[in-house]
Design a protein around this nucleic acid. Sequence first.
DNA 1: CAATTACGGATAAAATTTATCTGCAATTAA
DNA 2: TTAATTGCAGATAAATTTTATCCGTAATTG
Lengths: 165, 165
Amino acid sequence: MKIGKGVEWAAHTCALLALLPANAALALDTLAEFIGVPSPYLAKQMQMLSRAGIVKAKRGVAGGYKLARLPETISLWDITGAVDGTTPSFRCTEVRKNGPCGASSDEVITPCKIAASFRNAEDKFRQELNSVKLPELVAGIALDVSDERKTRIKAWIEQNAAFSS
Amino acid sequence: MKIGKGVEWAAHTCALLALLPANAALALDTLAEFIGVPSPYLAKQMQMLSRAGIVKAKRGVAGGYKLARLPETISLWDITGAVDGTTPSFRCTEVRKNGPCGASSDEVITPCKIAASFRNAEDKFRQELNSVKLPELVAGIALDVSDERKTRIKAWIEQNAAFSS
DNA sequence: CAATTACGGATAAAATTTATCTGCAATTAA
DNA sequence: TTAATTGCAGATAAATTTTATCCGTAATTG
């Protein structure tokens, strides 16, 4: 069981975007610099967030990314699902049909208990992530550390964001 | 998020072993034939189950595998952990320390909220799998399908298991 | 001792993840 | 309308992980 590292980047990016004034946006390269990751690859994650309707992209001069919805409506699961996909972690190959005592196709219409258990477990996983919304992340990432850093971040945004007229 | 397919095999194997009389064991090749998977690779899973104390291996003539503990004490999480490992799905690279506004090392002693959320979610996942014990799996895999199959499986075990004297 | 069976490590093939590049489309400002 | 900027989509490549196999060794039984 493994979560791609793009999810971490995407989550930090969204947390940063949540601090942005409504009329501002941050360009890809600026975002990548802030969280310290290679920008060509972060581009992938941003595109997925964009397609999922989590962030809104604007091209051209003074373009960039901003959140597409209110932070309260964006959960950690939304981000994870967008970047890492939503295919189930457990892939049932219906082993029951194999071997000398293999069941016939019409015997296995009821789902395998193993697969069902993993589905349940994954539901719990998803529910938990779904209960964590962006404002909670912001509080636990950018601003909990020190007032000094808080000030620095705000100043950096002021200086590096693109403001629309 | 992905679970290796060896977990599926191991779970089916354990379910089969749970049907075994106390004085019997099943050899690797026999197990592999029953669930219809390549035996050299199943060997890896069996070794991990063995090291984890879930199955007991016996070498030599009439050797093979049997459960090391009562089925009631073996959960789907035990099996998953043994075969797939127990390293957390989310790997925090402490992005907070990166970039122009990076936090200093002593500012990030409190765990990142993102990482903490994934830990919570994974705990829920683990708890759910831990609540599913082997007898429940047996009922939902081998014996739920039809009485005819039930009989065939029991007969096959009788014929292919190694019985100790 | 001879046959059998699991163990452990090495190795290789396949698939997936991670990362980069390039040409194109859209947007804005001069 | 042109030039500069910025995101989009797809192709490609490198690195890592998963999947799979093999072989020599150790243990067990009769």
